[in-house]
Design a protein around this nucleic acid. Sequence first.
DNA 1: TATTTATTTGAACATTCTTTCAACTGTTCA
DNA 2: TGAACAGTTGAAAGAATGTTCAAATAAATA
Lengths: 107, 107
Amino acid sequence: MDRSAEFIRKALPQDEEITDLADLFKMFGDSTRVKILSCLQLRTMYVGEIAEALNMTVSAVSHQLRVLRGAKLVKGVKEGKEVRYSLDDDHVTKILEYGLTHVNEGK
Amino acid sequence: MDRSAEFIRKALPQDEEITDLADLFKMFGDSTRVKILSCLQLRTMYVGEIAEALNMTVSAVSHQLRVLRGAKLVKGVKEGKEVRYSLDDDHVTKILEYGLTHVNEGK
DNA sequence: TATTTATTTGAACATTCTTTCAACTGTTCA
DNA sequence: TGAACAGTTGAAAGAATGTTCAAATAAATA
């Protein structure tokens, strides 16, 4: 086959790296999840608080929290019958900040 | 209703901002698109070259290029019967780089 | 002009994703 | 103990997404 295509293939990041990268960004690719992360950027919150702040079902929020937990972006700690959620990753804030800057440049 | 939920709501980024942000990250949330962007980080390329490098249908690549064009992340310039694509956004490289660093931290 | 090559496009299909609803677990407190 | 409350879970429904295939467009060339 082509020499050039071969060269590109070898210069590209590994397949697993790319998948991980896409999976990470996928987390930020849904507005509900971005809202939840933005909430937790302000302070730690219980599931019910998040649901109220975002005008959403507790169930829907809980489902998304599970996804975010799976991606190690948030963590939940049980406190009595409530669960207090917080960001579990320093990068979250930076990634959101960077994206927001970009978006606000109007570009 | 609750004072606290109200406070959070007001401290959150605007709804449109959040949507734009999610839409931006959505572009990076698919491995095919990440691969295409990674290709174009190396050099400008024709559609057929990208397809060959990634072992994909020209059609599939073209469809994704349209999406990326819509997001103003890439641009295509017609050269005879071919179309040369390149990155159309300084942020692309930085966003990918940042994500990759994060992913490779094993976190 | 007819043919070949590069790319785009639209429809169809399968897949994945998000939300809802109802049921369930576990904790508090009367 | 049992009622109330907070959260999780699974299944179902609906929307959105990515790829394929076939057809269309447009430029180069024979």
